[in-house]
Amino acid sequence: MTVEVRIPTILRPYTGDRKSVEADGASLSALIDDLESNHPGIKERLVETKDGSVDLRRFVNVYVNDEDVRFLGGLDAPVSDGDQVVVLPAVAGG
């Protein structure tokens, strides 16, 4: 199964400048592990470990078929063949 993952400009150094890559996995966390195996370093930009548990970084937005994964179970969000995943860093500041 294959999922298209759209990569934002800031993370394209990890994907050889590609805007979109393919990855496999039944959940977002499995998908991110698969991304990491092909694009080492990218996982660290997407997730963080806090109080012993791994979660998406606060200022990284990930969408599965246009739905923010925070409403789909976060890293446990299910992903299936043909889905489109979009990664966008938050536009935010103080």
């Binding site: 937005n61 246009d66 935010a92």
Partner: peptide, 23 residues
């Protein structure tokens, strides 16, 4: 123009759904 989802005098953030639509 974007909505400041934080609605704050010290912070701003584009709403997540607005951000996706924008990009």
């Amino acid at each position: 123009e974007m909505v400041n989802a934080a609605g704050s005098p010290t912070f701003y953030e584009f709403d997540s759904a607005d951000l996706l639509r924008l990009y």
